[in-house]
Simulated assay, not measured.
Amino acid sequence: MEHTESFSLDKEICFHLAEDREHHQGAVVPPIYQNSVFIHKSHESIAQSENDLPNHYLYSRGVNPTVEIAEKKLAALERGEACRCFSSGMAAITAILISSLKSGDHVLCISNIYFSTIDFLNYMAKFGVEHSVVYSPSPDDIEKEIRPNTRVIYIESPTDMNFRLIDLRAVAKTAKAGNIRTIIDNSWATPLFQKPLTMGIDVVVHSASKYLGGHSDLLGGAVIASKEIITELFSKELIMMGAVLGPHEASLLIRGLRTLPVRMKEHQQNGLKVASFLESHPAVEKVNYPGLASHPDYQLGCKQMTGYTGLMSFQLKQETYEAVRNVINKMKVFKIGVSWGSFESLIWSPNLGNNANQLKKEHVSPGSIRIAVGLEDAAALIRDLEQALG
């Protein structure tokens, strides 16, 4: 019953929250405020705006009415106090990391995370910021890797490529005891299927280019947290660095949120069907999908998630670059490409033929193939996989 009520509230947020249709002449779709500048009636008015930028329209690098609608929806969906949107997922991630860290600090990454996030943390070394990775999802193993200078624990759950789940409540409890900020990339689950802030996590980031947008026509990112964290982020990393979401992109995000509840049900249904097929195929060694009862973290998922999406990976029994290449090149319905979370089904592998050592370091099988199960007919997707694997 609790999940049903939460999903109903989420639908209401996606469809109607913050749209104020009477104010916009009854427009069922919010207008795009494409302007960069907002004029004022008096010097006193503009002075008030400049002294309180987060709450006034002055210049679209700060607050824009179209972007603001998307931010209010995302904050409400995540059960957070406030949200700020950025021009890409990486813009959101780098902004909150910079906001959270100073020279001499340490970031603990839990298991596999997005490679561009790791690239940025490597880059931060020039400013005296360290990071390390603990590949075990065990709360005890995670706690052992915390250092005296650890200031951020960075999480993806499910993790990248291997799709292990992290016990968010346990990590949040450990982090709070050490005054450590927790940040999670919640792009995989979306706010519909996982709400980390309600489990004690401090900050949620999203790549809005994925399920939130849902149509492969949007680059965007978001940070959701307490008003205190978001206010500091706005006045420094957002305003000064300027990687803001444009009003046109915000309108695409609002459009994507309208269909998010419907799309996610279909992604889940298709994902479960495809994962079950792969699990039974003789050419497949393992399927990494937390919606399967055979997944090592399935019971944890039942406690902290309310659904599953369409992104997963599987490992071929023949763990070679040639085997991976042959399967991918045979696909017809699945298209070869990076990213995920939109209507189309995509296939990709981290095995590039020249990175065996890197895969080993990251505990990723060289026979790994990642698929993003889209909204096509599940039977057609299964037939496509069957012919490619066969």
Score class of each variant (00 low, 15 high):
residue 339 S to V: 10
residue 380 A to K: 14
residue 86 F to H: 01
residue 309 T to D: 09
residue 147 R to H: 08
residue 236 K to P: 02
residue 342 S to R: 07
residue 269 Q to A: 12
residue 200 G to H: 01
residue 262 V to S: 13
residue 383 R to M: 12
residue 179 N to P: 00
residue 331 M to D: 06
residue 155 I to L: 10
residue 313 S to M: 06
residue 274 V to A: 07
residue 302 C to Q: 15
residue 235 S to C: 14
residue 62 G to K: 04
residue 302 C to H: 10
residue 256 G to Y: 07
residue 5 E to Q: 13
residue 114 Y to P: 01
residue 277 F to H: 07
residue 229 I to Q: 00
residue 131 H to D: 01
residue 299 Q to Y: 11
residue 249 E to K: 14
residue 46 I to C: 04
residue 172 A to H: 02
residue 42 S to N: 03
residue 224 I to V: 15
residue 200 G to S: 02
residue 212 L to Y: 09
residue 387 Q to P: 03
residue 32 I to S: 05
residue 374 G to L: 06
residue 287 V to D: 11
residue 160 D to E: 14
residue 98 I to P: 00
residue 290 P to K: 03
residue 282 P to G: 10
residue 118 I to M: 07
residue 266 E to T: 13
residue 165 L to N: 03
residue 172 A to Q: 05
residue 317 K to C: 11
residue 72 K to S: 06
residue 39 I to V: 11
residue 138 S to A: 14
residue 209 S to Y: 02
residue 4 T to Y: 12
residue 201 I to R: 01
residue 390 G to T: 10
residue 123 Y to A: 13
residue 260 L to I: 04
residue 45 S to H: 10
residue 88 S to Y: 09
residue 354 N to C: 12
residue 147 R to P: 04
residue 209 S to P: 02
residue 307 G to K: 08
residue 159 T to Q: 03
residue 218 L to E: 02
residue 256 G to M: 07
residue 7 F to C: 04
residue 185 D to C: 06
residue 230 I to V: 15
residue 78 E to F: 06
residue 215 H to I: 05
residue 315 Q to R: 07
residue 160 D to Y: 15
residue 297 D to T: 07
residue 314 F to V: 10
residue 194 Q to K: 11
residue 23 H to P: 01
residue 109 C to N: 05
residue 378 A to R: 06
residue 137 P to H: 07
residue 61 R to I: 14
residue 295 H to S: 15
residue 128 G to H: 07
residue 44 E to C: 03
residue 27 A to W: 09
residue 26 G to I: 14
